[in-house]
Design a protein around this nucleic acid. Structure first.
Lengths: 341, 341
DNA sequence: AACCCATTGAGGTGTGCAACTCTTTTTGAC
DNA sequence: GTCAAAAAGAGTTGCACACCTCAATGGGTT
């Protein structure tokens, strides 16, 4: 079966082109029986609408909204920049991305942002925290035919169509393995800092981290997690306290943002070289400290990949086309000094 | 400036649409002076041809050739499978990929394969070894207007348009860092096995590996590299010899294929748990042994990404469109037991 | 002056689909 | 059996470009 056109389908189904068009695009005014016939013909001929032709013919651009957190988190700023770059490229593709910012730590605010979206929106991608109001808002949107994607942190019990981000359990486990192997046979304590345990991604990282340390590295003991809201100052205080209170501290894992805070505390304590530090997200600053050795390993999710993937998935789902799983899977990148991009 | 069309360019340049079309598509029969005027108008208006419209209007499909190695190398078989999957998807995009196999270890054979390509081909991607005959063949193709990409292993002094693969120096350095850190303060010898030092990627990996070990890990000593042509049996013999000849062997780095050989030798020697083993490429077999702990870390280049990237780059270059560097950069993936996809 | 040939223009057709209008046919309620 | 509403058909146009034909222009040649 070569290239099938709508006309072939129309002929096969014994209906007119207009009817096939109505069925394919889910417009009303077609008898259920006829819809069946058309769908049968489509399946039988293996018809796949030509994406170029349909994008060319489309009058209206797709209108997608991206909802990102406010705040100083470097990764989020990076993600924002990547979305802006993607937006420029997508304009040629008749896809419009608009980027909004809300306080992600506030579930009600996120829900409000979702609820106040104008109708006519084709899809949303949102960095959401796992809060009942957010779940409700997502479900309402999904039910009204809007494609909803969760970004960075998932809301798994909602009807979001897809999650764009890494497996955060696995990320936590990876951090644990790196620390366990880098520390070696030494005994000691491991400190963990998170942004907020209201964010699902951070809880998951914590869970994975503690699981592996306790199971595989009996020489290590994880100290109680400290929350620091991804803010440099608070992170610095938390790391400083860890270093001061525990003379046998051998490693720090910062699962959230504010890496600069840990670095400052490490430098102030004079333990840069004997305390292993594993952090998240490749930024100009973490990159520099990875080269210097202050940071021993970075766990990263590629912001550019996420932005491009989000755009691709939104349009694919909107058009009812399949997505390519391998292409859209966000990897847990491990960066050492030597394999940075 | 919004969406510019060919018609806008024609108006701006003061010529007809037909002439603009001739210039844009490189057809003959236009005065040099006129070509200049049209190009100036294009640049001034920031015109970018709509990829959907042009693909839709094009009668002929693009015809790209992919030249892969014969042999049992698991990564190459994986790459082959990914190219086949990509081919199916690209058919809808009016792009035809055909996949050939030649003996990559034979420079003359690779060159012959390149030279015997039918004219009318739009582009080639080839896993090439760095051999004068190959360089010549690539240059000849490039000069005749064919887009040439190198795959996996580069031929940097040729006029290939792009290289799709990882930085192999960095991959070697990464392997060294992993081994250095996993071994810890222990002293001992490190064995390295490569496929063939006639392949540029393996030389580069060796170089990067030895550079880091000698510079950063004075407790380790790299033994002379053994070539094993990516064949399981030869690799097993090489690894077995390493294990037998050096009682103070603390790590093995296999820069080529045939990981199963190393695993067999390790298991036979009883040193599975105390000899660190770092290998390349995630395959069903290496994956299994990474979980079991026989393999301590894997360095990977994503075959799916490479196949998709190759297709995108070929068509983009063929159409004179820019490529997105971040999207086409092939990462050096580090996989531990915990972050496998 | 007659002629040649490189340039250029004009215009048409095709591409596969979205979206719209205008008819015609069918269906179902009363 | 009547009539309106629902369903289906027919036909057109637009999208931005590729590709082709045919004709016109004009400078240079002999």
């Amino acid at each position: 079966m070569g290239k099938m056109t709508l006309e072939d389908v129309a002929r096969e189904a014994g209906v007119s082109l207009a009817t096939v068009d109505r069925v394919v695009n889910g417009r009303m005014g077609v008898h259920a029986r006829t819809i069946e016939r058309v769908n049968a013909a489509i399946k039988q001929l293996g018809f796949l609408s030509d994406p170029h032709a349909s994008r060319l013919a489309r009058v209206r651009d797709y209108d997608f909204r991206i909802i990102l957190p406010t705040g100083e988190n470097e990764f989020m700023q990076n993600l924002d920049a990547e979305f802006r770059a993607t937006r420029e490229r997508q304009l040629q593709e008749r896809v419009r991305l608009s980027i909004e910012h809300v306080d992600t730590f506030d579930g009600v605010a996120v829900a409000a942002a979702l609820e106040s979206l104008p109708s006519g929106i084709d899809g949303v991608a949102v960095v959401a925290l796992d809060h009942p109001a957010v779940t409700e808002a997502i479900n309402a949107l999904a039910d009204s035919g809007v494609v909803v994607l969760t970004l960075v942190s998932d809301v798994p019990n909602s009807r979001r169509a897809h999650y764009v981000g890494i497996d955060n359990f696995a990320a936590g486990r990876t951090a644990a393995s790196l620390i366990g192997r880098f520390v070696g046979p030494r005994e000691g304590k491991v400190g963990m800092i998170a942004g907020s345990l209201a964010l699902r991604d951070h809880i998951e990282r914590q869970f994975g981290f503690e699981q592996i340390i306790s199971r595989e590295y009996p020489n290590l003991e994880v100290l109680p997690v400290r929350e620091a809201r991804d803010e440099n100052a608070r992170v610095e205080a938390a790391a400083g306290a860890l270093l001061k209170d525990h003379s046998d501290l051998v490693a720090i894992y910062n699962a959230g943002g504010g890496q600069a805070g840990v670095i400052k505390a490490l430098e102030a304590s004079g333990h840069v070289s004997d305390v292993i530090f594993v952090a998240h997200e490749l930024t100009p600053s973490t990159r520099r400290h990875l080269v210097r050795g202050t940071v021993d390993a970075l766990i990263n999710q590629d912001a550019g990949h996420m932005a491009r993937s989000t755009a691709r998935i939104l349009t694919a789902l909107r058009e009812g086309r399949p997505i390519v799983p391998g292409q859209e899977h966000i990897r847990i990148d491990i960066f050492l000094r030597d394999n940075m991009p």
